[in-house]
Computed example of a mutant assay.
Amino acid sequence: MTRRTIRIVAGSAAGVVLAAAAVAASFAPWPTVSATGPGTPAAPQIEVTPAAGQTVLACDGPLLALGRDAADASKLASAADTAVTSGAAAGDGPVQEADIGLPDVGTATSVTQDPVDGAPVSVAAATSASLEEADLRGFAASSCRPGSPESWIAGSAVETGTTDVLVIANPSDVTATVQLSVYGVDGRTTPAGGEIAVPAHEQRAVPVASIAGGEETPVIRVIAEGAPVRTSLQSSTMRTLDPYGVDLQPGVLPAREAVVPHVHVTQRAAQAGEDPTQVRVLGTSGESGSVDIDVVEEDSGESVFSTTAELTADVPVSVGFDGLEAGNYAVRLSGDVPFV
């Protein structure tokens, strides 16, 4: 046997020994190591409950008017200030501060509530405004809400006589970057100018017509990075040359069950029959599905209309409630996919 052959055999034998040692090690108990040293029981532990943080709610700011400046039809103006009502379950009550500015227009109010004895305190707040002017008329109210990294606006419209403004508020201390997506008859699109920076304690107002193009009934998704934001939609309507109403709609999150309470059908709407009350639904999972819709009379609890809306991925569906008499109704929705 040559010296080279002996080296190969020796190397193979050493490999067998090492392999055997590895196999044996896999069955042997491994030594334990903890913060107090090897082979000792687990280190002492302590449970820590983080201190409760401050609760921050953002409110809708002044009602906005669009097109009052003849030299700049896209310029926004403050039409009416909102009044804020707030309360807390304990402590000295929440602090209201008008500190969420919309540049050159006005400010919205933030409502903050400190914890009491290290525990969070339930707090609620709402805004309201009433006005009677040549281009805006009506009463609007909305709840003050915390920011969210995601929200959807399902009830906007781009049609003659309707003015919709998307308002994005950042009540936090850091800048938020917001990405807008629009869902319509052609599915999901990203509008030009759909990425918006919202500095800390500021708002941005975006006319829906500027991002929704030719969509008459768009659904808008708002995604925020860096800080959560509060979204809302201000809608106003003109009939011929007369202001017809103003409304504030909050951003929502997808769900499989939803209830729209207190849908008020006026006598005029019931008799006209040409513009029926309707619900708009969009599946948010990117898949087709269906939503069962049931309209219930609030006084009697009786179901007066029911149907099933078939959903196509990323395309909103509107369902009209023909034949509803004047009164108050609740709309119950149940889907096999998440929807708004």
Results as ranks from 00 to 15, higher is better:
T49P: 02
T49W: 01
T49D: 05
T49K: 12
T49Q: 13
P50L: 12
P50Y: 09
P50C: 10
A51V: 13
A51C: 01
A51H: 07
A51M: 10
A51D: 08
A52T: 00
A52S: 09
A52Y: 00
G53E: 13
G53K: 12
G53S: 13
G53C: 08
G53P: 00
G53A: 14
Q54L: 14
Q54I: 15
Q54W: 02
T55Q: 03
T55H: 02
T55D: 10
V56S: 12
V56M: 13
L57T: 00
L57C: 01
L57I: 00
L57P: 00
L57E: 00
A58H: 04
A58W: 06
A58E: 10
A58M: 10
C59Y: 00
C59N: 00
C59R: 00
D60E: 13
D60R: 08
D60F: 07
D60P: 08
D60W: 06
G61Y: 00
G61S: 01
G61E: 01
P62K: 02
P62C: 05
P62F: 03
P62L: 04
P62E: 05
P62Y: 04
L63V: 14
L63S: 06
L63T: 06
L63N: 06
L63D: 03
L64W: 07
L64E: 08
L64Y: 07
A65V: 13
A65C: 05
L66R: 15
L66E: 15
L66H: 09
L66I: 11
L66K: 15
G67N: 03
G67M: 02
G67D: 01
R68M: 13
R68V: 09
R68I: 10
R68A: 10
D69V: 04
A70Q: 09
A70I: 12
A70T: 11
A70C: 00
A70N: 03
A70F: 08
A70V: 13
A70L: 12
A71F: 08
A71H: 09
A71G: 04
A71E: 14
D72Q: 11
D72L: 11
D72P: 03
A73W: 03
A73F: 04
A73L: 13
A73R: 12
A73Q: 11
A73G: 06
A73N: 09
S74G: 14
S74Y: 09
K75T: 09
K75H: 10
K75E: 13
K75L: 13
L76H: 05
L76G: 07
L76I: 11
L76C: 06
L76T: 05
L76E: 10
L76A: 07
L76F: 10
L76P: 01
A77I: 00
A77Q: 02
S78Q: 12
S78P: 03
A79L: 08
A79Y: 07
A79W: 07
A80I: 08
A80T: 04
A80W: 02
A80V: 12
D81I: 02
D81P: 07
T82S: 09
T82E: 03
T82P: 01
T82V: 15
T82C: 05
T82R: 13
T82Y: 03
A83G: 05
A83I: 12
A83P: 01
A83W: 04
V84E: 02
V84I: 15
V84R: 03
V84M: 05
V84P: 08
T85Q: 10
S86N: 11
G87C: 03
G87E: 09
G87K: 07
A88F: 10
A88R: 04
A88E: 09
A88W: 11
A89P: 14
A90I: 10
A90L: 14
